[in-house]
């Protein structure tokens, strides 16, 4: 019986396994291989060993992109999570109009980032943009080197808050009311309840969101591309933009692959660190 059951199991997972192997593992391995070549995609491939990695580290472009991406992540992820949680705590109270607000805040997440980027370039336009007109000032949001990255992060936060709040709403829905009642009877105020009960009980949700949001912000590309194109002077050139520029504008597929490999390794490290950090914290069983 066991071999037959085992065979059935393999058959059931085979389509997914083949898909993952062909469209994920094999391309990753090939990209790793390409990173050791000098190749413009159309001509011949010349083996250059670690030269692509060496040149990337030497010319500062990779370091700049890593720094830009790290700052973007630090600006966008914690704020997105905090605002998403605050929004969720209000939406679960089922106040009048909550259903409408719930739909409205998710709309930006449903929209294509590229389209959102284009719309926000109009809003951020210094002379005729809606934002400056509303504020009655003239700020160069996307062309000032000190403001461009925070402006991009702001759009990312605006786009993601609704999506994040959905998960927090689901997490909040799983916390039994009796726990809050007990806390109230013990004299806990709203802030104490949030800090000592809600946040710890939402740790699994927070863990999931933190990992996915960090990974997503390290992969962000199209919205940044539409908003600033990586400028001014590479101040918003996130790591995925660097992959694109190297591959399609500079025709350096080897260097682009090297950046992609570094990005992959970096995400693996970040995910492992996050997993360790969260697993060392207590998770309450609410079942």
């Amino acid at each position: 019986m066991r071999p037959r059951r085992s065979l059935l199991g393999w058959m059931l997972v085979a389509p997914a396994t083949i898909g993952v192997a062909c469209f994920l593992i094999l391309p990753v391995l090939l990209a790793l291989g390409v990173s050791f070549f000098d190749w413009d995609l159309l001509g011949t491939r010349d083996f250059v060993g670690l030269e692509n990695y060496r040149s990337l580290l030497a010319d500062g472009a990779l370091l700049n992109s890593l720094l830009v991406t790290a700052v973007f992540t630090l600006l966008s992820v914690p704020l997105s999570l905090a605002l998403g949680l605050i929004l969720a705590t209000q939406l679960v109270r089922a106040l009048p109009g909550s259903a409408v607000v719930r739909v409205i805040v998710v709309i930006p997440w449903v929209c294509a980032p590229l389209a959102l980027g284009v719309v926000w370039t109009w809003i951020f336009q210094p002379s005729t943009g809606a934002l400056n007109t509303l504020l009655g000032i003239r700020v160069e949001w996307l062309t000032d080197p000190t403001l461009a990255l925070p402006a991009v992060a702001f759009v990312a936060i605006w786009q993601n808050v609704g999506y994040i709040s959905l998960f927090f709403q689901a997490g909040l829905g799983r916390i039994p009311d009796s726990i809050y009642e007990a806390a109230r009877l013990d004299g806990a105020g709203p802030f104490q309840t949030l800090r000592h009960m809600t946040i710890p009980l939402l740790r699994p949700t927070t863990f999931f969101l933190a990992i996915t949001q960090v990974v997503a912000s390290f992969q962000v590309f199209d919205m940044v591309y539409a908003l600033t194109g990586g400028g001014p002077r590479h101040r918003t050139e996130v790591i995925a933009s660097l992959v694109y520029h190297e591959a399609f504008q500079n025709s350096h597929l080897g260097r682009a692959s090297a950046v992609a490999v570094i990005l992959f390794l970096l995400l693996v490290v970040i995910t492992v660190v996050q997993q360790r950090w969260f697993s060392s914290r207590i998770t309450y069983d609410m079942s």
């Binding site: 391309p27 597929l253 992609a260």
Partner: peptide, 10 residues
């Protein structure tokens, strides 16, 4: 496949 691997992240 190689190109997919490189730009697949995007």
């Amino acid at each position: 496949l190689a190109v997919t691997g490189t730009v697949g992240a995007l």
